[in-house]
């Protein structure tokens, strides 16, 4: 999905549907199989989500809860979340925040919200790049594993402190005093309509369907 507005709507509908009930979760997974599989999720992320879901389900079972149902519902929520993350494009948050603000009659708040989201995402990506280089640099110094991680932590902390100082400086010289004007232009949402309508249908089906009709929840 290219239009961030419809993507946000679809992800919200699917997440609610998936968490609502096992049938909702299965419908959401079906949606993902049809519309979402083309976005590649990194294997490490998939593994992490899978292991977390299974562990959480085991914990729910052990404490007397409904483990299998939880497993399916949370698994589906994670799949949708991973899809949303992978489908994210540069600048989406800025556009989305500004659009929401303009529509809701509070353009200043919307712009700032989008800006904060954009800068936060950028900082995470930059910190990941820094970490890669810092880790390689520390590895080369050939110290032991513990002191190496302390060294990496120190270097990363200082790199991020410097980054936040640069951020403040750049905002100041660009003339930022809070708020701003941005009327984002989105590519045509028509191509994304089927996926969005399907996601809404999943939510409606999840609410209408009997809660626990499936064999997994017996």
């Amino acid at each position: 999905m290219k239009d961030p507005r419809l993507r946000l709507l679809a992800v919200a509908a699917l997440s609610v549907a998936a968490f609502h009930s096992v049938p909702g979760a299965l419908f959401a997974l079906l949606w993902w199989l049809v519309f979402g599989r083309r976005t590649a999720v990194p294997p490490a992320v998939a593994l992490f989500l899978g292991v977390t879901t299974v562990l959480a389900a085991l914990a729910a079972s052990a404490s007397g809860g409904d483990g299998p149902s939880y497993l399916v519902r949370c698994g589906a929520v994670f799949v949708i979340a991973a899809h949303a993350h992978a489908a994210q494009r540069d600048g989406d948050l800025l556009d989305l925040g500004a659009w929401l603000g303009n529509r809701a009659g509070c353009p200043r708040a919307g712009f700032d919200l989008g800006l904060v989201g954009e800068l936060a995402l950028g900082s995470i990506a930059a910190a990941a790049d820094d970490l890669e280089r810092i880790r390689f640099a520390a590895e080369q110094k050939g110290s032991g594993p513990v002191s190496r991680w302390v060294a990496v932590g120190t270097a990363l902390l200082f790199a991020e402190l410097r980054r936040s100082r640069d951020l403040a400086r750049n905002l100041a010289v660009r003339g930022y005093h809070g708020g701003g004007r941005h009327d984002p232009v989105f590519s045509s949402p028509i191509a994304d309509l089927p996926a969005a309508v399907a996601a809404i249908s999943v939510l409606i089906a999840a609410i209408l369907a009997p809660h626990e009709f499936f064999i997994l929840s017996l």
Binding site: D90, E118, L119, G122, A126, L171, G175, G180, R181
Partner: peptide
């Protein structure tokens, strides 16, 4: 050079002073 940039898209970077100043698109 990494330290002089704010955004993930070049377009947003160059548009930012105008947007911050509240100019028309």
């Amino acid at each position: 050079p990494d330290r002089s940039l704010l955004f993930s898209r070049v377009d947003d970077e160059l548009a930012s002073p105008g947007r911050f100043a509240g100019l028309s698109p």
